[in-house]
Design a binder for these strands. Structure first.
Lengths: 156, 156
DNA sequence: GAACTTAAGTTACATTTGAAACCAAAATTA
DNA sequence: TAATTTTGGTTTCAAATGTAACTTAAGTTC
């Protein structure tokens, strides 16, 4: 496989950042920055979930999730309720404020999808997303970076 | 276009991070962390370039680039020479140390490509990369986030 | 060419993110 | 059920990243 493909790792990073920034621009006036809306979107999609679910689904650290969830709660987008089956964890529940903003999130994502994927025909689009699904499975199957012990770090 | 596609923005972020971490794991023993090797790789590919070239090509801020380039210089991977045509900028030149590490970078990228894209057949792979190229063009055509003035920030 | 604007790179500072240690509740083991 | 390990969440602290203001050199305009 051609080594030049390496750049596609970078490409995906740049594209995904641009994608998220694009959505965030529409939502910033409603008090949702790029760190927040993906979480709110997941919570709304699933009805409810826990913080560790969000870690899993976003690939972010649990401290990062904690802070973003704090923000969402402090600004009235969600409430936390102790999980009935496990008192360690808590259910994150979207509020009516979250529900009222939902259409704007929807519109922002739709507009961004059009902007980024509008030029692809239906077939290409589906194939692209299928391949991303495959890559996600692969990614999830890999061990987490912190669990791998290689040669010790550089001397410096 | 289906709104559920939103998750693919996240997917690309997670996949690209995993990709870069995967490469970095091989290179960390040589003193190259995830922040550094993509830059060194670009510099070597192009023979030489400036810091602002690297901003463009990686989508990173110029301060971020500055620090990574400082690191590369301090650790003997590159040298800086004043640009003969423009005394404001400087050419980044790979050293012999960088050249000696090149095969390892090559191997690390090759192994990572096999890991991530090995399951795709040649046709899918090419199509996937073509689409990423298209998305990159689209991304580059979009205005940079800091240049856009929307409604003022949230009141909080 | 003098005044004005733009661009490359740097410094100082603030924000975002993550790593490590910690607590409390649950799960596991004996 | 007592001792041990694991897990969800939190606090503390360090590292990475970005914003803004600045310096110097080019480019522009008059």
């Amino acid at each position: 496989m051609n080594i030049a493909f390496e750049s596609y790792g970078r490409y995906m990073a740049i594209i995904s950042e641009a994608y998220i920034n694009h959505v965030a621009r529409f939502l910033s006036p409603f008090g949702l920055e790029r760190y927040h809306f993906p979480l709110l979107h997941i919570i709304k999609e699933k009805g409810t979930c826990t913080q560790s679910d969000l870690c899993q689904l976003t690939g972010r650290d649990k401290v990062t999730i904690l802070r973003a969830v704090d923000y969402l709660q402090e600004h009235g987008f969600i409430e936390r309720k102790v999980h009935p089956k496990d008192r360690r964890s808590q259910l994150l529940i979207p509020t009516s404020k979250a529900k009222s903003i939902e259409p704007h999130i929807h519109d922002a994502i739709k507009a961004t999808n059009e902007e980024f994927f509008g030029a692809f025909d239906e077939d290409d689009r589906l194939r692209f997303f299928e391949m991303l699904d495959g890559l996600m499975d692969k990614t999830n199957s890999l061990p987490r970076p912190e669990l791998i012990i290689y040669a010790e770090k550089r001397s410096s």
